[in-house]
Design a protein around this nucleic acid. Structure first.
Length: 706
RNA sequence: GGACCCGUGGUGUAGCGGCCCAACAUGCCAGCCUGUCACGCUGGAGAUCGCCGGUUCGAAUCCGGUCGGGUCCGCCA
């Protein structure tokens, strides 16, 4: 091949370069790029390369015009590529050709510049550029591509830009420094994950994207089958069943960066499609899984963001109960205090109706001290109350501890001074503190306060070291939760989660009748061998040790009101696989977007996603979803033909004049109607990052946004 | 499905019943300028204030609806 010689040259160059760099072991040279050579037909160096060592060399650079400073006979061009920025000096006296071209060049033009690397005049060095000691004295410029004026500044890192604009012109947004850095960070994350897993003997296996629909859990994205008109595939919500089957296949240690899709509403930390680090191990205890994952997470963090310290190793572990009781969340942010306190001891028998009714209904009264907020104004209290109500509270009680230690509160006249003081004491409120109290049903009361805890910490900026990585484990989740509406037990995680050994008896001994679920069934108290990992108050991922024994699995399904036939209908492949010798196994799934976002100190996964979708699921750049699919209907078979056609209604976009299609609810009703009726069980790993969704979803026929 | 917030020259904002056929910054265009690095200076073009309807003598401004975007609840583990 003609490329052969070039490649050999390239390798030689690479070796020479690496040799130079390693002459400064561990020094500044480590920060420089010295991977594969960037020398190509269009350039000798990248825009991040030029250094004093290149002085005197005639080189060619190619890149985008970052900025132009035209001083008349002298023009400065900042040339940019993803490696950095180099200053080019164009002197009319030195090169009339270059000067002529440079006068006509504009921002974001792509140009190729030939010139000599020169040391900068004394006093004109730019310490803010890695290449700032030198400059390229141009003696020839060629415009490779002209460019329109961009719709927003590429060269201003501080510019606030309209979100839809960024998404529509994502290729321009990605040219910006911060976005480039985040994409590079995500790339390093993926690479580190791959390296660490291979080092630990994991096998990378890809699983299919066209799989079987499992209507419970999150809504599936559906793909019609052309070869089997009327039948549909589902896109995976996670490779849960497949990875367990891989364990039965003897793979022993599996990992994959898996693409997952869930047709549910978005949040800042989840979207309709996302990537997860999916892994599974055989012949392991929960301790084995947690130990490996912890090691892996520490190694990966060190490779991706070596400058960021991990707050605590080993990672703090909380049972679900402890996390809820102390932090009001199953993803506790432990970087600041303000822990919750149960007030049963001091609030019982107070005569205050709200408290009394709560206790009578087996609810909880919990409180939290906010240091320094004692003098909070009425309007701020109202704001907090609004926050609490939006989090689902019925109300918010507050007490103020004055500077002299006396306690005042609107409800002091109901509680009496002693009791009021006792509450302040119980939550550890010192002088000047504000005490917030919520009374509600168990877990809910804590979660409301937990919500306030995080919001207040955010406002008061209680996290002092934002660079810290604070990982925690949360485990011993309840296996099931009773759903009052559907009158049955639901898997808290997924139906294959194992039960802690001491609770196995609860499952085996009770007489669950699938036809009549019982909220008092002692099996409902069972705790799962489930483990979630969190980072800085976000759930990164979750997993479990699986049930690999048939009888326990059947019992578990029965508790949730599912028949054996129902199990086979949905999980036949896995259950049949279990008949042929399943090793004990377990694993975890970690959301790549959430991890990358936290590592990049971002609060929204869009910031670490190259091409994200909006809250309504649109891709503003590709203009997807589009109505062109209408032409494919004929291929989807007569049984799939909708009664009413899903109207793809054109919507006009602000400022674009483009037509944005969207599907009406009838399209979804149709798509889901084409699949079979409701059924049971989810296949998804619990809360895998990017964008999870699942759980007692609507019956298949009713799916879809209404 | 629900709540809240946002939408004004290319971009970011100000204006929130008449003083606004809309102001500022930046960008853009033109001219001048040989050491700039957010270059500087001079001049210029550019918006009927997302869209529709209503209230009013009068609407960017108030009200209703709608579209788009964001955050949160539900949903999703």
């Amino acid at each position: 091949m003609g490329t052969r010689a070039t490649r050999c040259d390239a390798v030689a160059e690479s070796t020479a370069r690496a040799g130079r760099s390693s002459a400064v072991p561990g020094g500044a040279a480590r920060l420089r790029y010295h991977g594969p050579p960037m020398r190509t037909a269009f350039r000798d160096l990248t825009c991040g390369d030029p250094r004093p060592e290149h002085v005197g060399r005639q080189v060619v650079l190619s890149g985008w015009v970052h900025r132009r400073r035209d001083l008349g006979q002298l023009i400065f061009l900042d040339l940019r590529d993803r490696y950095g920025i180099s200053q080019v000096v164009v002197d009319a006296k030195e090169s009339p050709q270059a000067h002529g071209v440079a006068s006509g060049v504009r921002s974001e033009f792509v140009v190729q510049i030939r010139g000599t690397v020169a040391i900068r005049l004394p006093g004109t060095e730019n310490a803010r550029l890695a290449t700032g000691e030198v400059e390229l004295r141009a003696n020839g410029i060629e415009v490779l591509s002209e460019a329109k004026t961009p719709p927003f500044p590429i060269n201003d890192p501080d510019a606030a830009i309209d979100e839809p604009l960024r998404l529509k012109y994502r290729y321009l947004d990605l040219r910006r420094e911060q976005m480039r850095d985040r994409i590079l960070l995500r790339s390093r994350l993926l690479r580190a994950i791959s390296e660490v897993h291979h080092e630990h003997g994991f096998v990378e296996v890809e699983t299919p994207l066209l799989i079987k629909s499992t209507p419970e859990g999150a809504r599936d994205f559906i793909v019609p089958s052309r070869l089997q008109p009327g039948n549909v595939y589902a896109l995976p919500q996670s490779p849960q069943q497949l990875k367990q089957i891989l364990m039965v296949a003897g793979i022993d240690r599996y990992f994959q960066i898996a693409h997952c899709m869930r047709d549910e509403d978005m949040r800042a930390d989840r979207g309709p499609e996302f990537s997860q680090l999916d892994l599974e191990m055989s012949f392991v205890s929960q301790e084995d899984v947690m130990a490996f994952v912890e090691t892996m997470v520490i190694e990966v963090s060190g490779k991706v963001v070596p400058e960021r310290p991990i707050r605590e190793i080993p990672f703090p572990r909380f049972t679900f109960r402890e996390a809820i009781d102390r932090f009001g969340s199953d993803k506790p942010d432990v970087r600041f205090g303000m822990e919750l306190h149960d007030l049963a001891a001091v609030a019982t028998g107070s005569g205050f109706r709200v408290f009394e009714e709560t206790f009578a209904a087996d609810g909880r009264v919990v409180g939290m001290a906010v240091p320094g907020m004692g003098g909070t104004s009425r309007s701020q209290i109202d704001e907090l109350t609004q926050l609490a109500k939006r989090a689902g509270a019925k109300g918010l009680v507050h007490l103020s501890v004055e500077a002299d230690g006396s306690v005042s509160s609107p409800i002091a006249r109901f509680l009496g001074d002693d009791r009021t003081r006792a509450i302040a004491g119980e939550v550890g409120a010192g002088p000047g503190a504000l005490v917030l109290v919520v009374a509600d049903r168990d877990i809910h009361a804590q979660e409301v306060l937990g919500h306030l805890r995080v919001a207040i910490a955010d406002r008061l900026q209680l996290v002092t070291d934002r660079s810290e990585l604070s990982y925690t484990w949360v485990y011993r989740f309840p296996m099931y939760q009773w759903d009052d509406e559907s009158r049955r037990w639901d898997a808290t995680h997924n139906p294959f989660s194992g039960v802690v050994p001491e609770d196995e008896e609860l499952l085996v001994t009770t007489s669950g009748d699938p036809a009549r679920p019982d909220p008092a069934d002692p099996a409902g108290r069972a705790l799962a061998l489930q483990h979630d990992i969190t980072l800085n108050g976000w759930e990164l991922g979750g997993g479990s040790i699986r049930i690999h024994r048939r009888e326990l699995l059947e019992r578990s399904f029965a508790l949730m009101g599912h028949s054996l036939e129902g199990m086979y209908d949905k999980f036949g492949a896995l259950l049949r696989a279990f008949d042929y010798g399943a090793p004990p196994h377990g694993g975890i799934a970690i959301g790549i977007e959430r991890w990358a976002a936290r590592l990049a100190q971002q609060t929204n996964i869009r910031e670490v996603t190259a091409f994200p979708k909006t809250g309504a699921g649109s891709d503003l750049m590709l203009e997807a979803p589009s109505p062109s699919i209408r032409a494919s209907w004929r291929n989807w078979g007569s049984s799939a033909r909708p009664g009413q056609r899903p109207a793809a209604e054109p919507r006009r976009f602000r400022g674009t004049g483009q037509v944005e299609p969207c599907y009406s609810a009838s399209a979804w009703a149709w798509a889901y109607g084409a699949s079979e009726g409701p059924s049971s069980a989810t296949s998804s790993e619990r809360s895998p990052a990017g964008a999870p969704h699942s759980g007692g979803g609507p019956p298949a026929g009713a799916g879809g946004p209404s």
